[in-house]
């Protein structure tokens, strides 16, 4: 039954148990075990590092295909950040590049059968979004001091509207990490569940004999189409995550908009 269960793919299993605290009884304390999720986080980092280092190992003037793809990735993120946050925002380039590649590679890894999808767990996306907002707020106050609060007071708005506009701005600012994390999490989760449900149709129809086999063609085609769509979603969500990060960083760099 676990084969066709669309939720089973999200189960986290301990691989190297590490438990801290608690009174020794089961379920107490904090579970810091090395899990399948951790394994794929490490694999993601390893894959990104290998890719970028391999791509830049030759240092040839006329790039090979691998080097060109690495350079395209670099230029893509650099242009995205430069167009959103300006030249001053380029000091966050390694941060945005790490975020983009991490999300992208984690999403793409998740599409390989039997691989765990790191970004399908809300705590991971929330942690990334909170990290982004921490960097934005931290750098904003570090760079501009109290002037950073001008972010909530749009320029050119007449004074009597401010009591309405400022709370709206604050709420929209506070909802950013929520929407940022839930968007990524929801897209990936929904995509994987849909994929698994349709793949499950194939299995359960196939068990019904030859008529079932015939009927299973439709969900099979659907599965293939959804897989292609999920590749698009994986890339688009990584892009959106990085673009929004760049825009939020722009607020930290230039708070008065």
């Amino acid at each position: 039954m676990a084969g066709t269960d669309p939720i089973h793919q999200f189960v986290i299993e301990d691989m190297i148990p590490i438990h801290l605290g608690g009174d020794g009884t089961a379920g107490s304390g904090l579970n810091f075990s090395f899990t399948n999720s951790s394994l794929f986080m490490v694999l993601t980092v390893a894959a990104i590092t290998t890719f970028v280092l391999l791509a830049s190992s030759k240092r040839s003037l006329v790039p090979s295909r691998l080097q060109l793809s690495g350079e395209l990735l670099y230029e893509f993120v650099a242009n995205m950040l430069r167009s959103s946050a300006g030249k001053e925002g380029m000091k966050f380039f390694p941060f945005v590049f790490s975020l983009f590649t991490f999300v992208l590679f984690a999403n793409l890894f998740g599409l390989v059968p039997y691989f765990f999808t790191v970004t399908s767990h809300i705590i991971v996306t929330v942690a990334l979004a909170v990290l982004v907002m921490t960097v934005v707020i931290g750098y904003g106050f570090f760079r501009h001091g109290p002037k950073f609060l001008k972010l909530f007071v749009p320029a050119g708005v007449p004074g009597y509207v401010l009591p309405i506009v400022v709370p709206i701005e604050i709420i929209s600012f506070l909802s950013r990490p929520v929407s940022l994390s839930v968007r990524l999490f929801g897209n990936i989760l929904a995509g994987h569940i849909t994929l698994k449900v349709f793949a499950g149709f194939v299995v359960s129809l196939g068990a019904l004999g030859w008529l079932g086999w015939l009927g299973a063609i439709l969900p099979l085609i659907m599965t293939v189409a959804i897989t292609a769509l999920e590749f698009l979603v994986a890339a688009v969500q990584a892009y959106v995550f990085a673009v929004l990060t760049s825009m939020y960083l722009n607020d930290a760099v230039h708070p008065s908009h």
Partner: peptide, 20 residues
């Protein structure tokens, strides 16, 4: 599963950031 995921995410992302 949150503590484990947070810890390993922090470790791997910090490693990625430093490497990059």
């Amino acid at each position: 599963t949150f503590p484990s995921q947070l810890l390993w995410l922090a470790i791997s992302f910090a490693a990625l950031y430093l490497l990059m």
